[in-house]
Design a protein around this nucleic acid. Structure first.
Lengths: 94, 94
DNA sequence: TGAACATATGAACAGTTGAACATATGAGAA
DNA sequence: TTCTCATATGTTCAACTGTTCATATGTTCA
């Protein structure tokens, strides 16, 4: 059980950065390559690539290659579900 | 929208520490005072108090006084919901 | 009052993290 | 091959975070 607590903390750590959340929201719109994501979140390619790696490691996004480009998309429904409940929570605060 | 992204990141930041998650799990069992929580998570009173403050600020726990003691409990259903989905996610990873 | 208990707060220190920069890898075209 | 485009990786550094220790606040009871 203790291991799972650490894993859970690590998972939420990934959600705890606004850049990564913005990337996830961008991907809700569908599969996108790195340049498009960079442009959408207005950050340089390197920063976005680093964050995408973090997101991929924690299985929040998946990738496939398309020629020179890498196409990223949300990994599963948990991503949107977690973001949704989080949004609900902060919306209901006094 | 941008403000809400930051608020959302801040919310998940609270979930991103194993000590705080352990405290939340302890509180799933019901209302508890600080000493009992300290004992349950095996951390000193000061550390737990600091974390409880963080949890309270983000509206994840609520408090009431009972004589000398302060009784903490989960603030609402979002807490368990978020932890549950998070657990589901890490359980389904390959 | 004052002592004892329960909790909160402030400061300091070590460990962690995201962004920027430079560079490397990999794929397609010529 | 070599050039270019697209993406990934390594390093550095300032900013942030959790814990510990010491101390303060607040409550009850004698």
């Amino acid at each position: 059980m203790d291991d799972r607590i650490y894993d859970l903390a690590d998972l939420f750590k990934v959600f705890s950065d606004s850049t990564r959340i913005r990337i996830l929201y961008v991907l809700m719109d569908g599969e996108k390559n790195v340049s498009d994501i960079s442009e959408a979140v207005d950050m340089n390619q390197s920063a976005v690539s680093h964050q995408l790696k973090t997101l991929k490691t924690s299985h929040l996004v998946k990738v496939r290659r398309d020629g020179k480009a890498m196409l990223y998309s949300l990994a599963d429904d948990h991503v949107e579900a977690i973001l949704k409940i989080g949004m609900e929570h902060i919306s209901e605060e006094d």
